[in-house]
C-alpha cells in the first residue's frame, strides 16, 4: 500500500453543513437519534431527508426515528491521500433507502457486501455527530 504515515490517527470528519431543512435531523443526532423521512401520501421512506417527497412530490413528509440498521450494499476502502485507510459505503436501511456513510470498527471478515451494520455516531470537528455504521 502507498500509505507510509506512521502513527495513523482516525480520519477527522468535518462538521456537516446544516441548513434549515436538515436541522431537525442534526438536532436529533445530538441526542443520538437517527431520523429518516417518510411520506404520508405514498407511504415510502426516502434518504437524504427532504420536505417534499422525491417519490410523489407530496409535502406531507414526516420524520421517523429509525433503529439505523441495514446491510452493506457496496463499499470501497480509500488508501490515497489519507493518514489511515477508511471505508466509504452505501448501507441499505431495513426501511428501504440507501445511505452513503463510512463503515467503522471493521475488519476483513466484517467489511463485506451484505454484512449487517448498525448506526454508530462519530464526533465531528465542531459540529453534531455523524451517522457512521459499524458491524453488528
Amino acid at each position: 500500500m502507498a500509505d507510509t504515515t506512521e502513527a495513523p490517527a482516525a480520519r477527522r470528519i468535518p462538521a456537516p453543513a446544516v441548513n434549515v431543512e436538515s436541522k431537525p435531523f442534526w438536532d436529533a443526532a445530538e441526542q443520538g437519534k437517527f431520523l429518516i423521512k417518510r411520506c404520508k401520501a405514498c407511504g415510502k421512506a426516502h434518504w437524504y431527508p427532504r420536505n417534499l417527497c422525491p417519490h410523489c412530490f407530496s409535502s406531507e413528509t414526516v420524520w421517523e426515528e429509525s433503529p439505523g440498521e441495514g446491510v452493506i450494499y457496496t463499499y470501497s476502502v480509500m488508501h490515497r491521500n489519507t493518514p489511515v485507510p477508511y471505508a466509504i459505503a452505501y448501507v441499505n436501511l431495513d426501511e428501504g433507502p440507501a445511505v452513503l456513510t463510512n463503515i467503522i470498527d471493521y475488519d476483513a471478515a466484517t467489511l463485506k457486501i451484505g454484512a449487517r451494520v448498525k448506526v454508530k455516531w462519530t464526533p465531528t470537528e465542531g459540529g453534531p455527530p455523524v451517522f457512521t455504521f459499524a458491524p453488528v
Binding site: 456537516p16 470501497s76 452513503l100 463510512n102
Partner: peptide, 14 residues
C-alpha cells in the same frame, strides 16, 4: 451536502 460531504468521498472511492 450535509449528508454526503462528510464521508471522504472522491471520484476514486465512489
Amino acid at each position: 451536502a450535509g449528508f454526503e460531504n462528510i464521508w471522504g468521498g472522491s471520484t476514486h472511492n465512489t
